[in-house]
């Protein structure tokens, strides 16, 4: 899958796209507790994100994308990422505070790999994030991709 940038994908690295500093901090706290070995990187907006990724030598294995952001929305970022075959090796997990089936369908149609509900309770959100991150880390290592650092 060299055309999908698979050889450039670093499965030990996660990019979190979240505009709220409080939520970004909560995600950092959650992931450094459940997956201390992961390298975390944060972006507070979607504008310019795809160009930035395309210019990189190494791509994050996973993007955690907040759907509700000012400026370029999460939906728009998702669509832009999926429009680039060079980024097809990057897993995109979107998260939002809605469980409305229509919203989930729209994200899947736009190419999200996972749709995760952003719970109000932090400890529960940590469990939800752990579930999604565990799944993708293990899936990537099971599917013959680069071994996960776990």
């Amino acid at each position: 899958m060299t055309d999908g940038g698979e050889d450039r994908v670093d499965h030990g690295s996660v990019l979190v796209v979240e505009d709220s500093p409080e939520d970004a901090e909560a995600i950092e706290r959650a992931l450094s507790r459940t997956h201390p070995e992961l390298e975390l990187e944060f972006a507070d907006r979607g504008d310019g994100l795809v160009d930035d990724l395309l210019a990189r030598g190494r791509l994050p294995g996973l993007i955690l994308l907040d759907l509700n952001m000012p400026g370029l929305s999460g939906h728009a970022v998702l669509t832009a990422v999926r429009a680039r075959p060079e980024l097809s090796g990057v897993t995109v997990v979107v998260f939002t505070s809605s469980t409305a089936p229509a919203e989930v369908d729209a994200c899947y149609a736009a190419g999200a790999d996972s749709y995760v509900y952003k719970t109000v309770n932090f400890t529960l959100f940590q469990t939800v994030l752990k579930g999604a991150v565990d799944y993708w880390l293990e899936s990537r290592s099971a599917s013959g991709g680069p071994p996960s650092p776990m």
Binding site: T99, A100, P101, V104, Y117, T119, N121, L124, T127, V128
Partner: peptide, 29 residues
């Protein structure tokens, strides 16, 4: 989780939608 699930169950009076929401909340929690 149970508290959030109860909130989801209150969000709609449509059985199918309610169950879709519960399934979505439970995965991957």
């Amino acid at each position: 989780f149970l508290a959030e699930a109860s909130l989801q169950m209150d969000a709609s009076l449509d059985v199918q939608e309610t169950l879709g929401r519960i399934a979505r909340l439970a995965v991957p929690a």
